[in-house]
């Protein structure tokens, strides 16, 4: 019975959504602002990946807001779980041989992948959010494989605080220098090279570390609180 009501509700919802998106032709929306950004992004920011130009330069405040939302969610979950720094773990079943070995093999690969995504955020698809999530997944994989191998809350907390502060301070420096918050500064460099796009890679680095530390913190605090 419950199943059928769920399906009925979902069908209704999908009809509404379908009705809403039918008039839209895929790939033909009037890109009023999009066109302008396509034309001027490279000059304005020096980032080869235009998505990064939008995420960090044109809509940098949105990114800061999203970072804060993630932080808020992690803090709220922390309050609900009600532990600050419990090192005690439950007697969770030990992981099997496959998981333990795969974790050891995958961990360095994931780490490199995450750092690549973060550091090349201004050149290729990806960036701080994605890289940070991979980073968190890499560290959590170790916890999964060996429940004694815990993520240290104190360390992640400090990394998280410093990274978040670094993001805002990078914005405040441009506020002090040019009177505008979160304006890209530093030399733009040569388009497409690793050291280009001014302050954007630094922002992405801070973002990635913050997201990674936060998610790792969240996952490990979910994983080992006593029942």
């Amino acid at each position: 019975m419950q199943r059928w009501t769920t399906i009925l509700f979902l069908t209704g919802l999908s009809i509404v959504l379908f009705a809403i998106i039918t008039p839209l032709v895929l790939g033909q929306s009037p890109m009023l602002v999009g066109k302008l950004i396509n034309a001027s992004a490279v000059n304005d920011t020096g980032a080869a990946n235009l998505v990064t130009a939008v995420v960090l330069a044109y809509r940098g405040l949105d990114t800061l807001g999203e970072l804060a939302i993630l932080f808020t969610a992690a803090t709220a979950i922390g309050i609900i779980l009600g532990t600050t720094d419990k090192t005690q773990t439950t007697s969770s079943p030990t992981a099997g041989f496959i998981v333990a070995t795969a974790a050891k093999v995958l961990f360095p690969l994931l780490l490199v992948f995450a750092l690549y995504i973060i550091l090349h955020g201004h050149l290729t698809p990806g960036g701080g959010f994605q890289g940070g999530a991979v980073l968190a997944a890499a560290f959590f994989l170790l916890t999964l494989a060996d429940s004694g191998n815990n993520i240290k809350h104190k360390v992640t907390q400090v990394i998280e605080a410093l990274a978040g502060t670094a993001f805002i301070v990078l914005g405040l420096v441009s506020f002090a220098l040019q009177g505008v918050f979160l304006q890209p500064w530093l030399d733009k460099g040569e388009l497409g090279s690793l050291f280009s796009a001014g302050s954007l890679p630094l922002l992405y680095l801070a973002l990635g570390l913050k997201v990674g530390a936060e998610l790792a913190n969240l996952l490990s605090s979910l994983a080992n609180v006593e029942k």
């Binding site: 405040l61 804060a68 502060t165």
Partner: peptide
């Protein structure tokens, strides 16, 4: 009026820092 951006930024900054300090 440009400094009004600090209304939003400073609470965020303090919120990020507070758990550590």
């Amino acid at each position: 009026q440009d400094s009004l951006i600090l209304l939003v930024v400073l609470p965020l900054l303090l919120a990020f820092l507070l758990p550590v300090i």
